[in-house]
């Protein structure tokens, strides 16, 4: 479903968000093309780095632009953004230029690692093994990082295993937990409260404030979950702790 406003070919709108930021809105829905335009524009703006620019927060469908509002007016910033929008010939170039990297996350499914696997399978009317095969059979696109440090919002999950959130969120979800909420899937990089159905856990550390950038995954990356046994989980966990685990990265389609 999309309205005229949401067509990727329409120019994005620039909307004030309070007195220190504007939102550049490319659409109102989850869509690969819209998401690509957000990140292409963020790249173009970063490259130009106008003196009023403070911080960029790209999301599924929009780019929040913080600016120096003590010195620059809303009208000035809006006009410059609109000029950049109309002048940008690069909007669709990013996808073509960028190799599409798939990050493989070894994941132990079920049991203590994924206490909700059985109920996800039951909800889908399949057995647990099938649910794991479906979940691990897709490379998921990272649309944005948000909610908590390094949390990837992943799209493209098979509707067969879509499951509502837990009626009562857990007060503590262990770091590395892989979850499902409706037709989204994601990984909790750090321990936090959360209401997603937990089907597995990866020992890979997705956020480390001593790394640059601190988040391993970036929007535009893809993620594939690779099922492993508990014994291998322990091995990988130790390797991660020693700092000598490297995430396997491949190109999409290979």
């Amino acid at each position: 479903m999309s309205t005229d406003v949401d067509q990727p070919s329409d120019p994005p709108s620039v909307v004030p968000v309070g007195d220190q930021a504007v939102n550049v809105e490319f659409g109102a829905e989850i869509d690969d093309a819209i998401n690509e335009r957000v990140y292409a524009f963020a790249d173009a703006l970063s490259a130009q780095s106008p003196s009023w620019m403070r911080e960029l927060v790209p999301t599924y469908r929009s780019l929040l632009v913080y600016y120096d509002a003590l010195t620059f007016d809303l009208d000035t910033v809006t006009a410059e953004l609109q000029a950049l929008i109309s002048g940008a010939g690069t909007q669709n170039a990013r996808e073509a230029e960028r190799s599409q990297l798939v990050y493989e996350l070894p994941t132990a499914y079920g049991g203590d690692y994924g206490p909700d696997l059985d109920s996800v399978a039951e909800n889908a009317g399949i057995d647990a093994g099938e649910a794991v095969a479906i979940h691990s059979g897709t490379a998921y696109r990272v649309y944005m990082i948000g909610f908590s440090p390094g949390f990837p919002y992943l799209g493209g999950m098979d509707q067969r295993i879509a499951t509502p959130r837990l009626p009562t969120p857990r007060t503590r979800v262990p770091a590395g937990s892989v979850g499902i909420a409706e037709s989204q899937t994601g990984v909790y990089p750090t321990a936090s409260p959360g209401g997603w159905q937990l089907i597995g856990r990866t020992p890979v550390r997705l956020f480390d404030h001593e790394r640059t950038p601190p988040s391993v995954l970036q929007p535009g990356h893809f993620v594939r979950f690779v099922p492993i046994e508990p014994a291998e989980y322990a091995e990988v966990e130790q390797a991660v702790a020693r700092g000598d685990f490297e995430i396997k990265v491949s190109e999409l389609g290979r």
Binding site: V17, G18, A21, A28, I30, Y60, S62, M144, G146, Y153
Partner: peptide, 11 residues
């Protein structure tokens, strides 16, 4: 609900 976007101090 909306498709999630960024929030500011005071939103």
């Amino acid at each position: 609900d909306i498709v999630s976007d960024a929030v500011a101090f005071g939103s």
